[in-house]
Amino acid sequence: MLLIRCPYCEEERPELEFRNAGEAHIARSANMAGESDDDFEKFFFIRSNPKGIIYERWRHMHGCARFFNAVRDTVTDKFIMTYKAGEPKPSKLPKNSNEVVAK
């Protein structure tokens, strides 16, 4: 079970309190009705599904109930950072925790 830091509660809480809400930074068009078929396809159906760093939405369902964004490594399952909904996609990530610890 993962520990996830809620950026609103400013606390690490067990995964049981959270629910994943899919990929982040997919903006809904202000002119939804006027979107082309291609644009709507990209908006609604196409997801990146990367091996490695993913930007995704989570909800602190059984806590403050807020939606927020997270950067996670899909290979190691490690959370690299979390940030509030509406904040821009981080241009620089903190030290990649994907690095293995050499002992």
């Binding site: 809904r28 909800r59 109930a65 939606f67 909904a85 509406g86």
Partner: peptide, 13 residues
């Protein structure tokens, strides 16, 4: 409720 909260918090804040 989740659907409504999602839109209220993230698309129509």
């Amino acid at each position: 409720m989740n659907h409504m909260e999602d839109y209220l918090q993230t698309e129509f804040p």
